[in-house]
Design a protein around this nucleic acid. Structure first.
Lengths: 193, 193
DNA sequence: GATAAAAATTAAAGTAGTTTAATAAATCAC
DNA sequence: GTGATTTATTAAACTACTTTAATTTTTATC
């Protein structure tokens, strides 16, 4: 199990000694996902929080007309999951699947609770992770309210230049909240400038 | 200083003994805001996190065309602030002002850090608060991506029936991401059904 | 209680983004 | 490598929502 990335991620926020590190690692399970494989489907229970060590996943819904809407992408060094389902052990709102062959490290709710109890510093760690996620989401809400599709697209590629290269336009449009057709039109227009 | 509501709020998530409670209260400052008074302006430093004990506030931006966009409303029993500005002590993204005469309890960053150090349980408390806020925001992003303005309006009044009564339509439209004119048209159409 | 200011309504014209459908290009599967 | 499937492009018609502007209603102020 390759735990380098996750330990590095944690040490950016809290300090762990050897025992704590080993205990934490003992609670993790490795999992590989092939492209298009599901980590979670709407209606299932989200049994784990998941740290991505390789690949790219998306968290999304499918509306009544069959259209997909992506609430977040996850790549290396990010956590993904359906937090509400995970916390309350109720049916998941979101689908999560792999856009590339991916590798993740998983922790169950029971193990995470054990971790909080034995190493309370992790309360702090996940508080800090959540703070960042909260701030990023608030920015996205504000952008969705304030900007045109063109501006949102330019912001997206500006902020995530590497990510865009790994995604199809269809995925990008499902994240921006526009149709693939319109994104194609925007790109044409922008390239002509 | 009326601390009943905040102590009640906290005790829903963690247990505090008398000493801890008193220490926490000693870190708080009460503040009153008149309707239309600002708690924070874009560009200022957000020096406190703020718990609302009475009234209603909004967190919003003003775009290049002068239009306001509300990222969240806050009422009794909620926390408000510009988290990024608060944490990094960098200029605020958001304006926060009172939509009603309001009363809040404030804690500074220095005092909050002191609190985390002396009573680490508060790491847990704010992690739990952030979890809920994160989940609510994710739902809102999904709704903005997935639903028409009419559906979003119906969802909003369905989920926050009491809140809607306290807001002008102008505020509701700035939250939904539509113009007041269009909201008025929607309401007319819905009332005719 | 009168006046001013802000919010809500209505209508008509305009536009950003959607829909449908047909074609081309890229990727996948064996 | 070839056929099948998915993704991207283009164009034309369409619609959800905006803009502007005039009028009415509500709220705030002294």
């Amino acid at each position: 199990m390759n735990t380098d990335l996750i330990i590095q991620n944690i040490s950016r926020h809290i300090h762990l000694d050897k025992t704590e590190t080993d205990f934490f690692i003992s609670l993790l399970q490795a999992k590989k996902l092939k492209r298009k494989e599901f980590l979670l489907k709407q209606g299932e229970l989200c049994k784990t929080e998941n740290f991505i060590i390789k690949g790219c996943l998306r968290t999304y819904t499918i509306d009544d007309n069959g259209f997909e809407h992506i609430v977040m992408f996850g790549i290396e060094d990010w956590w993904v999951g359906d937090l509400y389902s995970f916390l309350t052990q109720s049916p998941a709102t979101y689908f999560i699947d792999a856009l590339e062959d991916s590798e993740i490290l998983q922790i169950t709710k029971a193990n995470l609770d054990k971790l909080y109890e034995r190493v309370p510093k992790f309360e702090r760690f996940f508080r800090l992770i959540l703070q960042n996620a909260f701030i990023a989401q608030q920015q996205r809400i504000n952008q969705n309210l304030s900007y045109s599709a063109e501006q949102r697209y330019l912001d997206f590629i500006g902020e995530h230049p590497n990510l865009e290269q790994r995604l199809s336009q269809k995925q990008v449009s499902a994240y921006l909240g526009i149709t693939p057709v319109f994104l194609s039109m925007l790109r044409k227009k922008l390239s002509q400038k």
